[in-house]
Amino acid sequence: MTMTLPVATPEDTRRTDRTDRIVEIVQRQGALAVLVVVVLISFATFPNFRSFDNTATILVAAAPPMLIALGMTFVILTGGIDLSVGSLYVLGGVLAAWASQFGFVTAFAVPLLVCGAIGVANGLLIAYTRMAPFIVTLAALLGARGLMRAISSEGSATFLVQSDAFRRLGNGSFLDIGYQVWLVAGLVVLGIVLLARTRFGHAVYAVGGSEDAAALMGIAVRRTKIWVYVMSGLLAGLAGAINAAKLGSGVTVLGTGMELDAIAAVVIGGTLLTGGAGTIAGTIAGVLLLGVIQNLINQVGNVNSNWQQVISGTFLALVVVAQTYLVKLRRVS
């Protein structure tokens, strides 16, 4: 190339650059900032909150939702949604408890296989029939819940975890922090690398940003979509298994609304529901924020725990409004 003519004058660039950077920081780190503030206030107000044990409790409780939200982040980044994860979470727990009689490995393998397969089905349907993810995964939600009720005789049969090794995973700890927290932390780090530093991760952003453009740029749109639903299914199943290990049985009444909590956490973490923008770091902040709010309500003691949902809901609405505004601010007119 021989010639150059400036396309944007330096002044324009500098001005929009600064607005951009501020908007980007708010969008990316907003949830984290709120989390820090909430934690600091709690530290000052509630003596019990300060204890190391309480922190460990929050983290253990947040482990399964974190896994589900991790998968959901990928799905939402492609512009999709996965409503089936709450059902898969319960199904995974029941299957893990049942399969634990055959040993530690099967306790993991069975829920992962079944939930992964449902994820494959979701992905194939969404990628090839172009049906709305909302409908496809709603069908999976109903199907998986039915399957769970069928194998647990209408939810009345409770499978107790038989494998000691599997039970230890749910109750043992390393450096006084539960094993499951370490496992989840490891997977989250993997997720971050996958999203930010691999071609697959960039394809996820591209598909969510503009599916048609991504296809024209030679991105394997279908394959990308299938994979995110498979990941989401696997992570939901794993979350169920971890929870079963902690509780010592496959509890059939959990998980209702888990998918909505996960979506809320992802959105609070700054990921756009329309896809194409967001980070896992944001999702971590979102999950922890919801967890901390829950924990605080428990600390206060005499408050009805349903207030937690009121607070989370209000917060979610605020975030969405703020995001809409930020996105507008960012768009060059």
Partner: peptide
């Protein structure tokens, strides 16, 4: 991009650039 007269920061979101860029 310098060869195409685009001097904007390459880390910026594409959508924030002028259409021509």
């Amino acid at each position: 991009l310098a060869g195409y007269g685009v001097t904007a920061d390459v880390k910026r979101q594409l959508g924030t650039l002028a259409l021509g860029a």
